[in-house]
Design a protein around this nucleic acid. Structure first.
Lengths: 195, 195, 195, 195
DNA sequence: GATGAATGAGCGTTCATTCAT
DNA sequence: AATGAATGAACGCTCATTCAT
């Protein structure tokens, strides 16, 4: 059923564009429909409501991204480089997908449904990619054990997220996210290294 | 000016309560007015619009908080303890002001005006409290100089912010923010220390 | 507060006009507002929703009509003439208020809320005006006692209602409701007389 | 034609069920289709639109009912018993077909098309069954001639209709329609008898 | 004939904001 | 300054109906 899948992705693609352009609340469903070259009502054959479009964008892009990150990490020889790659892949994704980044960093958080009702399983899964590396590092005696991995992964994610948001708000141009990635990786790798 | 100031703060106090209870978008101006025991229209004598109430809450609470943080830091003898106190004060504030924390961590970000138009001078000022400590540390040769203080302060803030948001979403109970503060401080102090 | 009362009745008057013209479901709230020379939203200061406008028309017109009927009956000397006057007043009201009659006979019954949720206390009250006459007649030995007044009043009302509806659908012109009133009164008075 | 006829009646049967359950306006065509185990679009091969389904139910059930009433009356020896049987058959039908009665008494009247456009030939035909008895009675000098049969039949129908509606709204249980039928017949037979 | 995916018109209601008093 | 009645813009969503297959 390729036609159906095709229509569904056209909606999502159009939604990313419109959300990034207008913001989630100002984005009109009818504008998304027009951008996807379908009728307004058709959207509701694929998504329950406007919030669900937003959440689907997140879930599906995150799913793709998570498996990408996993693949990148896999081939790294040690804990530290895994962590470094995790950080670099995160900020590289932001840099390469500015529209999507705007949706992830800004629009997503305007939806009550997303923030307060959506459990955020994809987010948890992503955080656990980092969490798993950290736990492994702790088992191997490379990472200090007196800080819970749950806190470390969250602190790391917070740093990346904040830097990403700032980059989006600065309209991209300003700084080099690749460099920042290296530096954030440095901070955390040194910060949590077993001494 | 006491009467006016009084009414103004009653509005802000009522707004924090209603925003925390209902969320920014679901909060009705009329409900804030009722909570402040004034007429709907009166609110517009003190604030330009609903977003301005939110922004004013942020600005005024941040002003108080910033000067508190500054005072706390002042008395600390060295860079590292200044940084540690910065972190602890941040998370302690969250823990002691759950309603305000909910507004800061969640509701504030639902306002397009806040995110996209409000330059966030108070936020910058707050970040610079950390930035100043870091710069001082770099000048004193205690903190590595190869990472821009602008990035460090943002990374640190991001970590604190993410942990705070998680705490708010978990409905507070779960974990000990005091302990987390120590651990985040540890990570960053070690992470940016000159080796 | 005459201004407020005035606005409320302007809405009701406009609603009768628009409901009669377009039917309940096709009537747009905005058209009612325009006819009443007020803003759309103002309607919702006076009525909870569109159905409530319809129900209010019914309740308020019925209240006026019921007290009119009661007054007419009061002055009649005996049971039979009371019953006759009841019938005549009913059909006379229909004849003199064609727009309202259209709303009562046709539009009202298109509202699910009216039919299925609204208890219809005013309708009950009206039926009881007839019911009371009948009970009195039974007590006085003028009306046969082997038929419950509850059935008689309903049968009588049904006859009047059906004739009224037919008259509305025939666009009024056709027949003389005054004559019909006399004849229906005849049927019922003879039909329920104690023999 | 059996397959087609079969599908058509399945739709009508499903529609009665769904209309009685949800009301005409809340009934979804797709739900009728699901109940009839056919595709949504198939309904439009048999009926022009949703209103036509409703009207068809009415017409077809009325056709069956009218011929039933005619048969019942035929075997009656005199005018009065014919009239009595007419009344009893009417209310007996209601009592024996509660779902259909709900559709006839309540849902049918919510359709603008039915009320205002559908001439109601089946209704006329049914009324004329009573009208014919009455005219015959007038010719035979049994029924008073000073009331037009057109009014009598309508008054009688109104009584039956109102009692039926009340019975439906009371959710059936309450009263004995058989008894009511006798009493209504009494009222009218006495009421229109030549004196 | 049968399907069911696609269409797109249609509108009640909310609520931030204004402004006459 | 304070009031609160009045305003009116704004739009997501449903669902009867169509039509390509």
């Amino acid at each position: 059923m390729p036609a159906k899948e095709d229509k569904r992705s056209r909606i999502l693609k159009a939604a990313v564009k419109v959300f990034a352009q207008r913001g989630f609340y100002n984005a009109k469903v009818s504008e998304i429909a027009k951008n996807a070259s379908i009728a307004d009502g058709t959207i509701y054959l694929y998504f329950k409501n406007k919030d669900e479009i937003l959440i689907s964008i997140f879930e599906e892009e995150m799913a793709k991204f998570i498996s990408k990150v996993r693949k990148e990490i896999e081939s790294e020889p040690d804990i530290k480089s895994k962590l470094r790659i995790f950080v670099k892949t995160h900020l590289n994704f932001v840099e390469k997908n500015p529209k999507l980044a705007q949706v992830f960093q800004l629009e997503l958080r305007q939806s009550n449904k997303f923030i307060k009702e959506y459990a955020g399983s994809k987010l948890k899964e992503y955080l656990n990619v980092a969490g798993d590396i950290i736990e492994e590092g702790q088992r191997h005696g490379i990472i200090r054990k007196d800080i819970p991995p749950g806190l470390i992964k969250r602190a790391l994610f917070g740093s990346l997220d904040e830097v990403a948001t700032h980059w989006v708000l600065m309209k991209n141009g300003k700084y080099d996210l690749g460099k920042s990635a290296e530096q954030i990786a440095d901070i955390f790798i040194n910060g949590i290294a077993k001494t």
